[in-house]
Design a protein around this nucleic acid. Structure first.
Lengths: 211, 211, 211, 211
DNA sequence: CATGAATGAGCGTTCATTCAT
DNA sequence: AATGAATGAACGCTCATTCAT
């Protein structure tokens, strides 16, 4: 009610500062959560990592749980934005591009996803809200693609969900060691190559000739 | 000093009783760890599940951490016993059998493996000792198989570790939802079918004709 | 399940020990609550007063609030036991006895009642459950007595609830300074004299002759 | 050093503004203290009730405690102003008027008195400074009145302090439920009637005839 | 003077572990 | 060997107060 003449610029500057602080807290927390797990990370740990007082945290998040939720939600938003543009897969090129894009999106925020997986592994609600719900449309798209290819007699009449799952499996096998931190993140070129390999191998198999 | 005249037979009976108790504690703990995670499970939870006093636990394990270690070690022993008999893969049939066997071994101890994965995801030492070290020979066997097939011109000249990883990926994709508890365990027949599908698809791909 | 042969005597001895400990915690807590108020008293304070570890408290009470509730409830039980025998007031003697008895019951656990009043003064639920609910039958009995006396033309036709309230007021005026600790507790003789004075004065007033 | 040329008029206007703000803070705080108690009321609660920043409070009061002290002191001043005019009681009419006046003064500042009682109940200094010290002259006046009446053989030779206490008790019984908020404030007419009743009943008692 | 942001001190509570029996 | 009781250390969180702007 007082100070109503503060210029708009300051308002947004303040907002930006708050947003920046929230971000730095989330980043530090994600790092710690990824290393030690959510439970094992104390609010004291997080505060020290950001170099602020423990109680200052509570000016930006109302609870430790909310920090986790913010981390998970932010990642979910990113995935949702991606899924928005998830078009029907047409040819192999678009298939490769989808795999490549997903890989990129997931690997650019490694720790966030590492936290997500850790929590989803023990928390049913997190699993449902942040993993299953998001993964479903991707699986659907893959299955539609395979069904279509079978209909056009390009693929053998395999169960579509089996095929989709194998694609996902290959994808996971490529990504998991990176998320876990025992393999370095691939360069964009390596990533693209990997995506092609996955699609190609699933399509053509390893045999030179059909048995 | 006292009880030195107790006959040997009683000693071993006592030992068996102790071993049985250790087992029941480990089973109950594994169940709880799998459900809520190691940190979130209290010693009181475990004691109640076994229906013993909380402090009685410490007669069998010197700390809560040691219960976890015992669980992981026991699982490791089982895997080691399996790896002992890991022979060179020769033909597709032996390949399918390996996949089937691994699946069976992992799925019969679902909760233990669920705990293992949860811990390995945040604890580097656990990851190294109980996962990487054990997984390595399996990967090696797979790569040898692929290398051999390529040498015999049965497989296309793909990177062997890439191929091995895709097999593992498909394997993981089949197994993870079961371990996590969102899919029921497959029957032995389903399991065998699954193993065949994985090997077959990796070998031949989905295409009817080579592009 | 083990140790089922422990003699019954030990069971009750243990129970008595637990009960004794609960009591000593309640007494110490009541003392502190009375002096500083419930909010201002910390669990640390209570533990120190009983000379036990702070966490030991939680073996006897599940929360700080429950200590308060136990204190209030215990007092309520005592009052309830008294109200059980609350018979119809017949003559002045029984009236005096009621006042005397109430006074005694309230003053024998001074601190408990001091806590009760303090809490009832700010907490509506406490007021309702522990004060209003208990006070109501007493007021009713008093009003019945007065109504009866009016019917028999012994009392002037005053509003009965007004008369009852004046008795209660005199009672309160006598008791409050003692509860608050600014006056010493009366001896049984003084107490009886006081009770008589209250009844007598209310009955006859201060005037020598009727105006 | 700066602003030394501001005209005196503005200074006093500023002072009035400050005083007004102090008042509104005290009013809001008294309300909250009365509802939840002093300890349970946070500075944030107060600030929000006045719709100012939490830290702004400290421009008007140097601590939360001082807000309470200001509230109590203000009430004390009001009582002192009243006690200034406390004349010797002569006849029943002046007695009734005193009771009526006291009632009115107390009930027009219900919340303030509720806070006063709550604090006096646990804080010895508050009790002494704000209750005992102020109540004493009232009691003295009552006792003098009774002593005088006894001397004139109008009252029976009762202990004067006993009689005074009974008047106070009746007064308290009438006022406490209103202060506590479980009874509505009486209208001026009801209040006057009440005052008369109290004096009358104490004087004449309930009996139609003397026993 | 007003305030958003920051914080030290401390709160009620939990829990892995120890100890006396 | 088994356990009920005890507890130090730590946790997530609150709040009166300070400070830079």
């Amino acid at each position: 009610m007082v100070n109503q003449f503060i210029p708009v610029k300051d308002q947004t500057r303040r907002e930006r500062r708050i947003e920046r602080q929230r971000r730095s807290i989330m980043d530090a927390a994600a790092d710690l959560f990824a290393q030690k797990g959510y439970r094992a990370t104390t609010t004291r740990d997080i505060a020290e990592a950001v170099d602020i007082g423990e109680s200052t945290l509570y000016g930006y998040f109302s609870s430790k749980k909310e920090v986790l939720v913010a981390i998970l939600s932010q990642q979910a938003e990113m995935v949702d934005a991606l899924l928005m543009h998830l078009v029907e897969l047409e040819d192999f090129q678009s298939f490769v591009n989808l795999v490549d894009l997903l890989m990129e999106k997931i690997l650019t925020r490694t720790v966030y996803n590492r936290v997500l997986i850790a929590e989803a592994w023990t928390d049913d609600e997190v699993l449902q809200s942040y993993v299953v719900a998001r993964w479903h449309p991707v699986m659907q798209t893959l299955q539609n693609f395979i069904t279509m290819k079978i209909a056009k007699s390009i693929f053998r009449p395999i169960e579509p969900d089996m095929g989709a799952r194998m694609v996902v499996g290959s994808f996971i096998a490529a990504i998991l060691p990176v998320l876990r931190g025992i393999e370095p993140a691939p360069s964009p070129e390596q990533r693209h190559h990997l995506a092609m390999m996955i699609v190609e191998t699933i399509s053509n198999g390893l045999n030179i000739k059909r048995g």
